[in-house]
Design a protein around this nucleic acid. Structure first.
Lengths: 204, 204
DNA sequence: ATGATTAATATACCGCAGGTAGATTAAGTC
DNA sequence: GACTTAATCTACCTGCGGTATATTAATCAT
């Protein structure tokens, strides 16, 4: 394991650049990708060539690190999904593309995803990182559906529900992967689009 | 805080009853209900009037305790939901009753639920306790839907998805409760039953 | 009876991870 | 050049999960 050379204590000399928040997050991400989701703050600091207090100074506690990584992950995943959906007309097909993009990205960000979602020291930590996605998704839901008249109240509930659904399916799929992301996306889309009622619906 | 009198070290005298697995779990549940989801194993042991190693002897590590409590919680919640659904003909109404029962039970088991779901030391722990529910639900899905021909493969994915959905919505609802469980059940049922497609569906 | 074995317990410790206080070095400033 | 300030490291504290070992008493073999 190649550890970056540690600095001397004390203020760095004039020319030396100091680490910043961004660099720390990038280091954390690199380490997690390489070593898996069970890395300590100390290891993260070491990966950046600094020590724990620096992480606290620039970012904050572990929760803040998780938050920061979650944000990057969210943004990247949002970007992928947005690109996948772009130009797709049929809404069901759009959902399929969205989910498929989500799952495909998940495979490459696997460790990062596990770190971010698996790090719940207290309790309501998993939610904190779902909040951003949820509000965004809720907006989208209101937009595309109008939500049957007057109730955007249900949109936020739906958003959390959908995110939870994707999350759990993701964890399960990452653990015992027994199908391709394309297959899984297809299956999830069916549930999301037509619901448990199925294709039949009101036709009878 | 009334702490049960600790025993003397050594084998208990002839008449004295010894704690068993069931009693330990009951104590843990009682403590969590009273003190919230952030209780240590040591506190759980103390609540039962014993010490940590006893918990390890009778149950196992923390994971085992969580598992045990999760099982009780699952069973109770399953019971409530089963009773709520009994005799309901309309499938959509059955779903609504199921979800409503789930949410109502959640309010009384709040702390326990948070303890069980929030305790993820490593990573894939949340899944472990979802597994039982998921396989059961998957069976149910295959049963009531036949799953459109030949694919029970998607049933398990749907099951994890639905459980994840309920889970996330539950966490969110427990945190910022802004509606009644009846309202939320109604909204979730709409999503689960008709899907994002909505009532319209194939009618056009 | 009495010594050896076994069951059931408590005490005391280990290691790790998150978090923090205080020492350390050098740059800026008057 | 002395003083303040910035940025860093070292060293520690705490809480928790987990375990090794001592302690007590019942049980069993002789």
């Amino acid at each position: 394991m190649v550890v970056a050379a540690r600095r001397r204590p004390g203020r760095p000399r004039a020319g030396e650049v100091s680490v910043d928040r961004l660099e720390l997050l990038a280091s954390a991400e690199r380490l997690i990708r390489r070593e898996g989701p069970r890395v300590s703050l100390e290891a993260i600091a070491a990966e950046a060539g600094v020590t724990k207090p620096i992480v606290y100074h620039h970012i904050g506690g572990k929760d803040a690190v998780v938050q920061g990584l979650a944000r990057r992950l969210n943004d990247r995943q949002g970007e992928v999904s947005r690109r996948a959906v772009a130009g797709v007309e049929d809404p069901a097909e759009a959902i399929r593309a969205f989910v498929d993009g989500y799952l495909e990205q998940l495979e490459t960000d696997r460790n990062l995803y596990l770190y971010v979602t698996g790090a719940s020291p207290g309790s309501g930590d998993v939610l904190a990182l779902a909040d951003r996605s949820a509000t965004g998704l809720a907006r989208l839901l209101v937009e595309i559906r109008g939500h049957d008249g007057n109730a955007p109240a249900s949109a936020i509930a739906w958003a959390y529900g959908i995110i939870g659904m994707l999350h759990f399916v993701s964890l399960w799929w990452l653990r015992d992967a027994d199908r391709t992301h394309a297959e899984l996306a297809e299956q999830l889309t069916e549930l999301l689009w037509t619901g448990l009622r199925g294709e039949g619906g009101d036709r009878t």
